[in-house]
Design a protein around this nucleic acid. Structure first.
Lengths: 243, 243
DNA sequence: GACTTTTAAATGTCAGACAAATAAAAATTC
DNA sequence: GAATTTTTATTTGTCTGACATTTAAAAGTC
């Protein structure tokens, strides 16, 4: 692990990159202890605050964890699926909100990925996951539900559908696509009638999953995508001529 | 933006979270300048090094960028697709390498997602993307190619396929799935014969895309997945009884 | 008016110090 | 001798104050 001493700026970034490379390449393995901050400062010939800034960069990516005390220090962290989920969701959400991605583009991507889960989910979904979906459908039918709560329940429903595929890698990859859509969905103020339609389509999905009918799930997802996109178009249209 | 002063540990993490929340919620908008480090230190009632550690955490996630000089400071960064790509790839790669994910699970997820792109790619792929795929197939057929180079070309081929769908959100979501597989693929030392088979399947995919034949692309991808998984099983078998 | 110099503001880095947590080692007690 | 308590050393977390470097605006000069 070496850094370029000729470039005296961004030392902490260089050090972070050097350690990151060591982790990704496998030179540092999970749960291995890094040298203490003082030793790292010595090795890289920088001050301890600079080393600390580098370590905080790595901690922000969940690549290391730190522990105080006599046997403490910085340890290579086993990146958990949960950590990866939340990173993925933050990144995806910001990517969509900051880059003027059209609703259609985001929607298309999300449903394309979700349809990819449909056959596996139809085959493998557990009774528990099906129960979760039914419960969310029930919640969505409650009157007086705020738009935010309705959307949160919508996300929970679709996550259960994705998790039904029983493939944690797939669930991780889809987490961003499903969750990042929520802020965009929130912008579509659902009327009572549109909620009804969505709930019905959710019911169709659940029924098809119940019957382990892969084609049925896919068909219902296609319908739901078409309906969602139409809804977005209508809202955009209304905003254009509000009278 | 407030932090909990009762908990005197992890102050920099708390401050980073407070600013992160402000960005995600939209309270801080793209290109907006944050207060100077000295001002933030004042606001949060902490020292400047602590503020700096918080800012470095955010910089590690590409949420802010810093600029030196009179009109410098920390600015909310527009998260680019490229930044998001590389974060996604790093996270996905580490997730797979650190969590004993089976080859089958990773492979299934990757091909499920890739098949989701097939219909769109068949419809929309540009001649340029098709040419990229043909070029990669040609490269893969070169004798003397290292396993690493073969796999890198494989990744380039599949990325062109995904990009062919013309949906940047989809490309972003799949970047992790496709790229993170490479280290796992590298572990399968391809024999000359297995390379030939893969190249032929790649050719089938390109031909089907050329003909805008969505079903053909999907069928070829299914074949490729089955072949890849069989290959992995064979390698595992050979390792069990190397004689 | 165009160019040069100065200045001020901001980040980047450093050095040294103390606080707090933590586990191992040492001392004490039974 | 064993169990408990106290001490000690190590390490991270934080603070203070300082200086270097970069950068753009302000002031000065021709």
């Amino acid at each position: 692990m070496k850094i370029d001493p000729k470039n005296p700026a961004d030392l902490s970034a260089q050090i972070a990159q050097a350690i990151r490379d060591a982790i990704v390449s496998g030179a540092l393995i999970v749960d291995e202890r890094l040298p203490s901050e003082a030793e790292l400062a010595d090795q890289f010939q920088v001050s301890r605050p600079t080393v600390r800034e580098a370590l905080k960069r790595l901690a922000a990516q969940a690549l290391i964890r730190t522990q105080r005390g006599a046997t403490g220090g910085a340890f290579v962290n086993r990146l958990s699926f949960e950590d990866a989920y939340s990173q993925q969701i933050t990144t995806s959400t910001l990517l969509l909100s900051m880059n003027a991605v059209s609703f259609d583009t985001a929607c298309e991507a999300r449903y394309a990925l979700e349809r990819a889960c449909a056959p596996m989910s139809a085959e493998r979904r557990s009774p528990d996951q099906l129960a979760t979906m039914r419960a969310e459908i029930f919640r969505q039918a409650q009157p007086g539900l705020t738009d935010e709560a309705f959307c949160a329940s919508d996300v929970a429903f679709h996550r259960a559908l994705v998790d039904g595929a029983g493939n944690p890698v797939l669930s991780y990859q889809l987490a961003g696509a499903v969750e990042a859509m929520q802020p965009l969905m929130n912008m579509i103020t659902f009327t009572a009638r549109s909620r009804e339609a969505i709930i019905e389509l959710h019911g169709n999905i659940a029924d098809a999953l119940d019957a382990r009918d892969a084609d049925g799930v896919e068909a219902a997802l296609i319908e739901l995508e078409a309906y969602t996109r139409q809804l977005a178009r209508d809202v955009a249209e209304q905003r254009r001529k509000p009278a």
